[in-house]
Write a protein that binds this DNA or RNA. Sequence first.
DNA 1: TTAATAAATGAGTGAACACTCACATTAGGA
DNA 2: TCCTAATGTGAGTGTTCACTCATTTATTAA
Lengths: 192, 192
Amino acid sequence: MRDGSKTKELIARTALQLFVDKGVTATTIRDIAGVAGIAEGTLYRHYESKDQLAWELFSTNYLAFAEELDCLQEGYDNLKDKLTAMIRQFCTFFDRDPVLFSYLLLAQHGQLKKVTPEMETAVTVLQKVIAQGMARGEVPEMEVELAAAMVLGVVLEVAVFKAYSRITQDLAPLSEKLAAACWCVLAGNGTH
Amino acid sequence: MRDGSKTKELIARTALQLFVDKGVTATTIRDIAGVAGIAEGTLYRHYESKDQLAWELFSTNYLAFAEELDCLQEGYDNLKDKLTAMIRQFCTFFDRDPVLFSYLLLAQHGQLKKVTPEMETAVTVLQKVIAQGMARGEVPEMEVELAAAMVLGVVLEVAVFKAYSRITQDLAPLSEKLAAACWCVLAGNGTH
DNA sequence: TTAATAAATGAGTGAACACTCACATTAGGA
DNA sequence: TCCTAATGTGAGTGTTCACTCATTTATTAA
């Protein structure tokens, strides 16, 4: 009984890189096999199809990250601390694996239709946390979706800039600034 | 001499919608021709190739919008007003043609590599305006790229939420709130 | 009405694609 | 050492793709 788990991991990392570079549809099985240095048939020992590979890479990591954010968030008792911790976590993870997080950011459009509403994602966690904070009067009431979109935008667009090398420094050192900006967006013009 | 400009416009609108729905690579010439109710060959009377079609739709509108933003911006003499006007413009245009702006938002990743550095885009205009504002002391100094990313994020992510129907209302009525949030991000914790 | 010209057509073409399968190779337990 | 079962292989297969071109259709200027 041979161990193919190393090969599966190699395929995953190679595909991730190519998916980010060229997009999922434009990446061929030949591309992946060629770069990974394996035969085309080998890929099918580990993944049913290209779509299934793209979906597994997306869903596994997308949902796992949401889960981690949710656990982390529970360790704090107010919106400001929850938000700061979540942003720090995102930045740290992005720096640790930029290719993976670039994939999650950029492949979203193609894969997001397959995400069913009952799945807990980073977006739903963020909305929940913001809604709690509003209910507790920590920040002024406003449309939760709008608030979540603005906060998410501050963090994600900076990550997108980093993915495009428009920003060159690591994200983690920026996390305090990002958290401050997000807090400002939620708290309004200078109150709090 | 027949007039094919109507057909070209029909192809453009049909392709735009399909590109947003399925992505450029996953959209076939058959798809476009089928939905538009024309023959496959007809498309090639108006566009060299699928890539050229995708690029023309992207670059024309992407650069035209940047140009409009830049003209608009010149009509104001301080960062806050410039920013507010630009955001109002974006929201108005998005509401007027959501499919086009969704394409610009979501197709970015594929087309952005073809955008050469000397082209003036919405991002460069925004960076220029923010840099001016900092130089004039209207907002505290910080990394221009970071500031631009955060401001852009607030606006674009709200548009993305709208494109995904996570937000259902029009963007234009939100433009004052967005401008306030962006100003807050730039001006810092409650100062100004 | 007609001639001239551009637009529109859709079957056809070669290339590239995702995926298969009969076979070769390897690792590890007996 | 040898057997076994999983892993790895790559030429082969049917399909789908972007794109072409000889032909037809529609428009307009004369």
